[in-house]
Amino acid sequence: MAQPDTRPIAHPSKAPRTSRFSSDRLGSYALAFATLLLLWQFAAWSLPDFLLPDPLKVLAQFPDAVVSGSFWAGLLTSLGRLLTALAAAAALGLGMIFLGAAFPALRGYFRALMALLQAVPPVAWFPLLLLWFGFGPLPIVIVVTLAALFPLAIAGLSALEGVERRWLELARVLGAGRRQEVLRVYLPAALPAVLAGLEIGFGNAWRALIAVEMLAGAARGLGGGIQLAGQLGDMVTVLLGICVIGLLTVLLDGLLLEPLKRRLLAWRYR
């Protein structure tokens, strides 16, 4: 009997993509960036310099900033806090997701815990943490960790509950025990949601970091630098800080999160 269906089938829409950014996406980004720059320029023309310096003036500061030590110190301080907090959030979140996969009874409990804690914006804990741990980096890192943790944990725990029954049954039919169900079904099934949660958590962490650095008073880190410059009326430095934060977010997303997603979710990108 002929076997008519083994011919390779062409999926034009599913052709392997090799480039990190498709040119479409890059184009949209360029257009959006140009729009913002244009709006800024128009606003700068109608406002005096001490309220809003124009983009060229800020950009001209960029080379000076790059060679100054304090710029790098601030940048590295903030990045260090961000990455420490992200690592802590990932460890805590993945731990909860793993336990939730292994013990279904814990799933609802963890989710309730996260939902309750999420109701409070993490920055609100800052005064309390400051009192407990003093003016070191620890209160800042804890706030940022909380900001990244909630979306990650909630997305992952919800995904565990959405695992299709047939997938569990298939594993059992093939001879999987409880432990193997966790490793071979629950975790891979939850992975896309976990990474989406990580992406949202990353955005939250950035926002919380800058906010809490501005609150911290001590003029360290990017947020601290912006806060200090604002108090001195130095709008050029404020805007420079804003530009650096925006640029860093795009870079970290493109260089860290996107490749991670493409690597771990290879099956979705084929």
Binding site: R166, W167, L170, V173, L174, P188, A189, L265, W267
Partner: peptide, 13 residues
């Protein structure tokens, strides 16, 4: 005694 379902009988990942 292995069961094969009608469709989506494989893990997408």
């Amino acid at each position: 005694r292995a069961l094969v379902q009608q469709e989506r009988a494989l893990y997408p990942w």
